[in-house]
Amino acid sequence: MAMITFRINRYNPDDERRGHYAQEYQLDVQKGTTLLDALNEIKWKQDGTLTFRRSCRSGICGSCAMTINGVNNLACETQVLGLGGSTITVEPMRGYPVIKDLVVSLDPLVRGILAVKPYMITHSPPPSDQERLQSPEEREKIDGLYECILCGSCTSSCPSFWADKEYIGPHAFLKAYRFVADSRDEGSAEHMEALDDRHGLWRCHTIFNCVEACPKDLNPTKAISELKKELVRRKLG
């Protein structure tokens, strides 16, 4: 057991004048307590106005991404005592408009996703009564891409996105490459159409923040460089 101070960055949309402010809560924390457990405990026993998104509790839905001691992560997967220190700072993810307390708007995420035509595009009809064939080696090429949970941690950590709100974002590039790399997909040109743009791939300056921020250990920067190569190949070819 340890008494931990949670310093939470708050914002009440009904009180614009007050703006963003920090509020501290104390909680006795046991081994095994996740940050989400702690936030729930605070909300349920101390202050019902504290607001954050949450759902699955098991790191697969992506609801509870937030900035924890300066780093984006999922609250449900973060062990409080694993963070070390007696004060933990919790903020809404950076770069997105804040709706209330730790809740941010997901609109930029969706806008980025829509830009890359985020669905498998095929022109040849599938075999009837059978699946399309894909070898295990071909299938392996989308490992590290399809696992994205759309939590938004990567794009929120990206300085290019901070400077350009129209930037499509690493999460969407990862999605685009998930299809470009899929042996079954026949629409690479369509997925990449929006990427060759000032708000697209070329705005990535390989800072690698997105890689560090991803709670699922995925590598958007790698996907981006693959897409850049593909674009160049297409231009020269």
């Binding site: 599938p126 009564d129 059978q130 399309r132 894909q134 070898s135 299938r139 299809f179 899929d182």
Partner: peptide
């Protein structure tokens, strides 16, 4: 059931594969 699963594959679901390339 087989129809529904194969439709998911046609939609692009990344199923794991057998050595022959089937689901």
């Amino acid at each position: 059931a087989p129809i529904v699963v194969r439709e998911f594959e046609h939609m692009g679901c990344p199923f794991s594969r057998t050595p022959e390339g089937r689901i």
